[in-house]
Design a protein around this nucleic acid. Structure first.
Length: 143
DNA sequence: GCCAACGTTGGC
DNA sequence: GCCAACGTTGGC
């Protein structure tokens, strides 16, 4: 069972939108980065849990926990796919956190508990990234 | 709006 | 295959 962190810009699609979506479920599409694509295609499994992360906003941070309800499949928004290039997954909101676990707060643990967290690595630009089980639990304990 | 950092593109 | 130019991401 893998754990993930998935970034979204709340001005485009955020936790409020996901909460209102039918079955609190959405197709996570539009990823156009090969490394992230490979994760979606090869490593995302039904039942995996993922943090929902708000980026490019006033208070960047983790706002919810999601469940992967459909593993990787060809992204239907990928128009020119004779062979599929891009992949999507379906995720369901499990719960909204009682508060935002902010990027600033995660950074406060960057030299210790969260030293290897991909989100905190220099120059990281992945929109979908793995989180270790230990990191996942630690972050939840901050709530 | 700025800018650092990275991915992608395309000329050679 | 190299690498400069360009585009994008995302925090601040």
């Amino acid at each position: 069972m893998n754990h993930w962190l998935m970034k979204t810009e709340p001005s485009t699609f955020g936790i409020d939108d996901l909460e209102r979506a039918p079955k609190r479920t959405t197709m996570w599409d539009g990823v156009r980065n090969y490394q992230a694509r490979n994760l979606l295609r090869d490593d995302f499994a039904k039942g995996d849990r993922a943090f929902l992360y708000h980026s490019s906003c006033a208070v960047p941070g983790i706002v919810g926990v999601m469940r992967v309800v459909r593993a990787g499949y060809p992204d239907p928004t990928d128009r020119e796919s004779a062979r599929p290039t891009w992949y999507a997954v379906d995720v369901q909101l499990e719960r909204r956190l009682s508060r935002v676990i902010t990027l600033e707060e995660l950074r406060a643990h960057a030299t210790r508990c969260l030293a290897k967290l991909v989100l905190l690595q220099r120059g990281n630009r992945l929109s979908v990234m793995p989180v270790s089980a230990a990191h996942f639990e630690f972050i939840l304990s901050l709530e």
